[in-house]
Design a binder for these strands. Structure first.
Lengths: 193, 193
DNA sequence: AACCCTTGTCGAACCATGTTCGGAAGGTCT
DNA sequence: AGACCTTCCGAACATGGTTCGACAAGGGTT
């Protein structure tokens, strides 16, 4: 509320940044057009010259989020910190959820975005990146790649939604730990389904 | 809008029924106090004598939902249609999600309810019922019961949120099928994690 | 009966937030 | 200069949650 530097950077860009900040500060509730306009130092009506409506703004935010997630996944797979690409991709995925819970919730649970084709395409893109981690892994038969990566992807959605329900942040970490531990056990040969 | 039978049944009960109906007809967007009041044939202000506010109404809806789910799980476990109690509980869980996607979404993703202690307790209760399906199963070591049931529970959340994102209903069924198939494969001894 | 207190009800207003309207300021093209 | 486009804005509008003040019905209490 003090900075308001109107100089440089398209207003669209700055509005998205402000929205992202508001989202992380105060959750989805906090993302209000008047609040964004105040941060950016513009009038509310101005925002409508850069976005069709609020949903379009949220959609742009979500699309950027999926892109960011895809990039993180690819970086992790490229790095040599992990024994398997699957581990890298999964770690990047979970890390993103833990680091940006509000953003991921928006990307994932906002009903209004479900109908948006571009958002869906962006998620498909991210999922495609994730899938490549499973393709070529000797433990995964090629015809199962899609199914198996889908399971982990969906489990990630579940973890995110469970995490958001937790009131205290510590509980969230513990929850994630337990889910991963349990999942690991299910995958181990000890468990004969 | 034609019935409006004011006779019998506390208004609270009828308001909840109307809300539930609105939820299933038109999604969370459709659950509006004025719409509920119209259905029930009362003024809007009257609703405030039965619920603290809208969130309290939604919370009551969610609590009933969790109770319903717990009941379904227990019925399925008691029946003899399933080889293992785990199968019964899981089927009941998934069936509930598929049959009441909007309600489950409310129970699970509505941010406002995350802070509500009674809603959380109701979910804990339902989860506890679910957990008993794993307790005593010869394939699950006792010390792993909690973790493993948690994984399935969280996976269910993920399935629900993924299903809600699907535009066409057919795609949702296909998605659920693929996730379950993939999960089944991961559990099979063929996959050595 | 007269009095009060609680409960349920309501229309009207209040308020926050997304949205639209009409116009102003500045640039570019002809 | 004139026409036109983009960017911008204050003000008003629409919707939906919420509060206010009042009215009616029932049940004690005196």
């Amino acid at each position: 509320m003090a900075d308001e530097l109107k100089v440089m950077g398209t207003l669209r860009r700055r509005a998205l940044d402000a929205a992202r900040l508001l989202l992380e500060e105060s959750g989805a509730e906090g993302v209000q057009l008047r609040a964004i306009a105040a941060r950016v130092g513009s009038g509310v009506a101005t925002l409508y010259h850069h976005f069709d409506d609020k949903d379009a703004l949220l959609a742009a935010l979500a699309i950027e989020g999926w892109g960011e997630l895809a990039r993180k996944i690819e970086e992790a797979m490229a790095s040599d910190r992990f024994a398997h690409r699957i581990d890298g991709a999964s770690t990047a995925f979970l890390g993103f959820i833990r680091r940006h819970p509000q953003l991921y919730a928006l990307m994932q649970t906002e009903q209004a975005l479900a109908a948006n084709r571009e958002v869906r395409a962006a998620e498909q893109q991210a999922f495609a990146s994730f899938q490549t981690a499973f393709r070529g892994d000797e433990r995964v038969p090629p015809e199962r790649v899609e199914e198996i990566s889908l399971v982990i992807w969906v489990l990630g959605r579940g973890i995110a939604s469970a995490v958001l329900m937790q009131a205290e942040p510590g509980a969230a970490d513990e929850l994630v730990r337990r889910v991963i531990s349990g999942f690991g056990f299910l995958l181990s040969p000890r468990f004969a389904g």
